[in-house]
């Protein structure tokens, strides 16, 4: 079997909970269709978790941090996303900007208030919708020839979403956040992407 080509990686820092599943799926489909391998801190055990996350950031050229859910959850503010953003910003600093950091938010101007230290980075605003997210991803990442469009990304998102019941049945899990489903979603996005490429040519 021929050795796999080098694929650019992106570290994905998002809230992993049921309420965020739609955008989680949109991130996986969108980033994969743009040509990335997505690194996510899924199924990382608590022991050594920080070291694993640092390792994933180091393996990635880019990192995407979604700060749209930093509000209080069950009486406690969610600090995981800002902590991981801090790690990535330090990585960017020590690599002299080779590691690129992107911030995503659902509301304009909120990140500047919640995390004012990063005022130099313009957040991408997705308005909490898959369409907004795809547009935001495409604002910052392009393929040579700019071939993948937002409608195509959304069509793939919907196509993969329709297969979720079967994926959940296969994995014996109701949650999309299981590590096995994450791998399935990545490969399904590419199968769909291949179909789109075949239709284009």
């Amino acid at each position: 079997m021929p050795r796999a080509r080098r694929v650019e990686s992106v570290f994905l820092n998002i809230p992993y909970d049921h309420a965020f599943e739609e955008l989680y799926l949109a991130y996986i489909v969108g980033l994969t269709q743009l040509g990335f391998r997505v690194h996510a801190a899924l199924a990382v055990p608590n022991q050594g978790r920080l070291a694993t996350i640092i390792g994933l950031i180091e393996q990635s050229k880019f990192s995407v941090h979604d700060l749209s859910r930093v509000e209080v959850s069950r009486g406690v503010p969610r600090f995981n996303m800002p902590v991981e953003l801090g790690l990535a910003l330090y990585r960017s600093h020590v690599t002299k900007g080779k590691h690129r950091v992107f911030i995503f938010e659902s509301k304009a101007h909120r990140a500047q208030r919640s995390t004012s230290d990063v005022n130099g980075i313009d957040p991408q605003i997705h308005r909490g919708t898959p369409k907004g997210l795809m547009s935001a991803l495409r604002n910052i990442f392009r393929q040579p020839g700019d071939v993948t469009t937002v409608p195509q990304m959304l069509a793939s998102y919907r196509a993969v979403k329709r297969r979720l019941p079967e994926l959940r049945r296969n994995a014996g899990s109701q949650s999309l956040l299981a590590a096995a489903i994450f791998r399935d979603l990545t490969v399904l996005s590419l199968i769909q992407s291949q179909q789109l490429i075949a239709e284009r040519t």
Binding site: A4, R5, E8, R37, I140, R142, L190
Partner: peptide, 27 residues
């Protein structure tokens, strides 16, 4: 806002399956 062009072509499902350690049967 700078736009970053991804240098690698979109990997095939086979390539990604191999990277992720997924079996050919699962693919």
């Amino acid at each position: 806002m700078a736009v970053y062009t991804i240098t690698n072509p979109v990997p095939t499902p086979e390539e990604m399956a191999e990277i992720l350690g997924m079996s050919p049967e699962r693919l």
